[in-house]
Design a protein around this nucleic acid. Sequence first.
DNA 1: TCCCAAGTGTGACATTTGTCACTGCGGCTT
DNA 2: AAGCCGCAGTGACAAATGTCACACTTGGGA
Lengths: 221, 221
Amino acid sequence: MVALHDLPEDVRNRLERNCKWHRFEPLAEIVGYRDQSRDVFFVTSGRVRAVIYSASGTVVAFRDVGPGQMFGEYAAIDGQTRSASIEAVEHSVVAQMSCDTFWKLILAEPAVAKAVLVHLTTMIRALSTRVYEFSTLTVQNRIHAELLRLAREHPIASTSVKIPKLPTHAEIASSISTHREAVSRELTRLARLGIVERRAGALVIPDIKRLIRMVEQAIGE
Amino acid sequence: MVALHDLPEDVRNRLERNCKWHRFEPLAEIVGYRDQSRDVFFVTSGRVRAVIYSASGTVVAFRDVGPGQMFGEYAAIDGQTRSASIEAVEHSVVAQMSCDTFWKLILAEPAVAKAVLVHLTTMIRALSTRVYEFSTLTVQNRIHAELLRLAREHPIASTSVKIPKLPTHAEIASSISTHREAVSRELTRLARLGIVERRAGALVIPDIKRLIRMVEQAIGE
DNA sequence: TCCCAAGTGTGACATTTGTCACTGCGGCTT
DNA sequence: AAGCCGCAGTGACAAATGTCACACTTGGGA
């Protein structure tokens, strides 16, 4: 997370005056794939998502961006076209900063430079993992790995983890490159095996270590 | 490319004294996947490759690093373990710089900071493309796209491009997540269609625009 | 309350992709 | 010159994955 919060107050104030603020409704497109714009955006509230729609209708989801996080940084940094579309998932408020201001900020504030560098390597690692999983894991195992990633965002209660708002099957599918049906079937299978329990809107994993073992075994095979 | 060449000479000399130099034979492992080291390396001559071997023997290739390029930067930046193994492909000479020196360099030299930022976004774009292609293209189309990428590294002679040293089928396969056989078969098919011509050790693409059209059509479908 | 839309569950089937097994071809070594 | 080795070519088959069709569930609005 790029922590603009930690900047000296006068710097932050000046930056905020340099931003344009926008609100977006769900499904609104904020940035278009391959656009030539180069501004950087900071999400204040809500949630937006980086996706690419192929012409045949397949949706590839790259990442979700929530409060305190930024998007649009790739084009701002390298001057290329937008690497993906950004669309609002929820009602969102975002601040728009020009690429020039962003560069000045990076070069003037070492803490920002560090944060951006770390942020970029984090993205690289996430994408590498995805490529690696795609190359070595079956669809089933990718679903397990994705469940584990979702679980890791929530606290462990003794051995069990509750994922309160499980994304739709279609959303899960589009982040691991498969189809809704495969996710549905696998969840049913995992439920039969007692590895997950489906509760209204939520998913409970009674024994998270068991899932961890399954994933580790799949990766190390 | 992170251009250390462009630094003032005194800075560069000091840096070079801070580096340890190494030579590696082909197949030597320079950095191990998940190691905890954090040094950055610069390739002076030769070529090294970032790969992960799954326990089942599948090889996933991430990128090749040649003279003037660096590797090991992710761990140096975020302090995590190594994201992949690095092994020498050819006899290579490599300079090793400590993570601390690297950070000082970034923070002291804006040109270096910029270069590293651009380099990281380039990596992100390459990985995103790979994820996108994997999610939307068939094996055949991924082979076409990879051939096009290889072709783009070489000059166009009127309409044709010659790829002098085509990587082995197995190498191509491991950068697009498929198998040697698929590459072999598809090259045969493309040769029959007149889209490629096989010459001793080289591959000629007589009409590069035709290949470009094929790839664009596949992506936009 | 009822109905609709979005999301889900599941079977049957089609297609793609991977696996195995074997042959052939250079180039290089002994 | 013979033989070996890594890479390449290819057929037959197995397995994984995707597609389609349709029924069911559920949680808000009208």
